[in-house]
Design a protein around this nucleic acid. Structure first.
Length: 442
RNA sequence: CGGGGCAUAGCGCAGCCUGGUAGCGCACCUGGUUUGGGACCAGGGGGUCGCAAGUUCGAAUCUUGCUGCCCCGACCA
């Protein structure tokens, strides 16, 4: 993409509504525009990152055997009356009336609806286990939205729902999602620690929150230091191997790790002083196993091998891609701007033509850009007639991990520079060597 | 929902106390000079001062009501 054709409204000054780093940087980098409290337009750069995060989540859900569907944002109140949550949910639920006066709502979550999908088709134990998920916008009318996309009212959520014959099956389903989440966050470049969590109004016994440690986190968290070192299951981990899944979960739940909601002082004190981590964290995932709470109310039942019909055991598993974009920035930035992990970087590389109109600069820049197009690399090519300083600042702000600088100083002799955004280190290479290196490494 | 604050050009702000022709920086447009870390010179465009009512000869400025947004707290499947 040529910068001159790209819609990237960089802000030089920070809009005053933004208080925390990620929100400020998202606004300054032209990723989002606020439309009203807790509701945002995703601009091209922001949307690109959001999609990359979604893709990683989707790939790992699929790998774990989940089926993607897409349920609507608007739901009928009737379903929620069946589960008893229409009245229980309170003001956070946005209630709407259609032209016929029918009561509708903008979904804050989808347990009811997915259970309805399930009960419409699945009748036999032979069809289990089953996991259905979707990635869809949710709305929760938070009293006080804040922190930009990290605590918005409208937000994107991947929510998966598992259906199993019995408790044992439900635990296995829970374990698969647990492992899937470990892999997902690993691929996103962050350490997310599973912590014991409150199950809240959704009910149930088994629940973990996945927490990224960050100074600006909303939750106070406590855990054993070993969590920072534990190995993450590889790509070819066998999700069908229940024993292996169980072992991984056991390893990742062996030590103490909990949010302040369920803080256990006795267990905390059992940890050696130099092994303790007391920090703040951002919740980026939350998984629950809640048994038959919804399947009983909504009559989601299957026939067992013994011929009897019983409610299915369910679990739900959420990750917020939109919140994650903010959380990633909280984890990866410096004074100059964002430093994207390679897996979610909006472009594979940035090319800075420092002096458009200068023969050698144009020639080398175009050559690299053409090589990218040919190789299918997604490059942002800054071909604008701007001061070099502005170009450097912009590229750093939007956080592309690899940048190629083509300036008159080295271009005359056919060289370009490759800059690493994270370290600031630069390497001068001939243009051909640079192209080879870039095509091979990114 | 309790407490606090803000609202003046696209963004950041001054002006308000003490009523009298709406300003600055950045951004934008034109011309020129520039280009190794957010360039410079000259010229130019852009505002029902959040909305409504009131006081006044006269309101961005004073009064009242409303709306929107932000911060702290409580809340957060």
């Amino acid at each position: 993409m040529r910068f001159s054709r790209y819609f990237l409204p960089i802000l030089k000054e920070t809009p005053k509504e933004a208080e925390i780093t990620s929100h400020r940087m998202m606004l300054r980098a032209g990723m989002i525009k606020q439309q009203s409290a807790g509701i945002y337009t995703w601009l091209p750069l922001g949307l690109k990152i959001l999609r990359k995060v979604e893709t990683i989540i989707r790939e790992e859900q699929n790998r774990a055997g989940a089926n993607e569907i897409l349920m609507p944002t608007l739901q009928s109140a009737d379903l929620w009356r069946e589960s008893g949550r229409y009245d229980a949910y309170g003001k956070e639920m946005l209630r709407i009336e259609d032209r016929h006066g029918r009561e509708m709502l903008y979904g804050p979550t989808n347990e009811e609806m997915v259970t309805d999908v399930f009960r419409s088709y699945v009748k036999s134990y032979k069809d289990l286990p089953l996991n259905l998920y979707h990635i869809q916008w949710k709305f929760r009318d938070e009293v006080r939205p804040r922190f930009g996309v990290m605590r918005g009212r409208e937000f994107l959520m991947k929510d998966a729902y598992s259906f199993d014959l019995d408790e044992q099956g439900a635990v296995e389903a829970y374990n698969r999602m647990f492992v899937s989440y470990l892999r997902t966050f690993e691929r996103l470049g962050v350490k997310a620690i599973p912590m014991r969590a409150d199950t809240g109004p959704i009910g149930g016994e088994l629940s973990h929150e996945f927490i990224i440690l960050a100074e600006t986190g909303e939750n106070e968290v406590f855990c054993h230091k070993d969590y920072l070192q534990l190995p993450v299951p590889p790509e070819d981990v066998d999700f069908d191997d229940a024993e292996e899944m169980q072992n991984i979960v056991a390893q990742w739940t062996e030590h103490y790790a909990a949010t302040d909601e369920v803080f256990d002082e006795t267990k905390w004190n059992e940890i050696a002083e130099d092994q303790k981590i007391a920090a703040r964290g951002i919740e980026v995932g939350h998984i629950f196993s809640f048994g038959t709470t919804y399947s009983e109310k909504l009559a989601a039942e299957v026939t067992h091998p013994d011929g009897k019909t019983r409610p299915v055991h369910m679990g739900s598993y959420g990750i917020g891609p939109s919140r994650l974009v903010g959380a990633l920035i909280e984890a990866f930035h410096d004074d100059n701007g964002i430093i994207w992990p390679k897996s979610v970087a909006p472009f594979d590389l940035g090319i800075i033509n420092m002096k458009p109109g200068h023969g050698a600069c144009d020639e080398l820049s175009e050559k690299i850009y053409a090589a990218c197009l040919k190789a299918g690399k997604d490059a942002l090519y800054d071909d604008r007639d701007q001061s070099a300083g502005a170009k450097f600042a912009t590229m750093d702000l939007i956080g592309l991990p690899t940048q190629v600088i083509v300036g008159p100083r080295v271009a005359e002799s056919g060289d370009v520079e490759i800059k690493d955004r994270a370290t600031g280190e630069r390497e001068v290479l001939s243009v051909d060597a640079a192209i080879n290196k870039l095509m091979a490494e990114i």
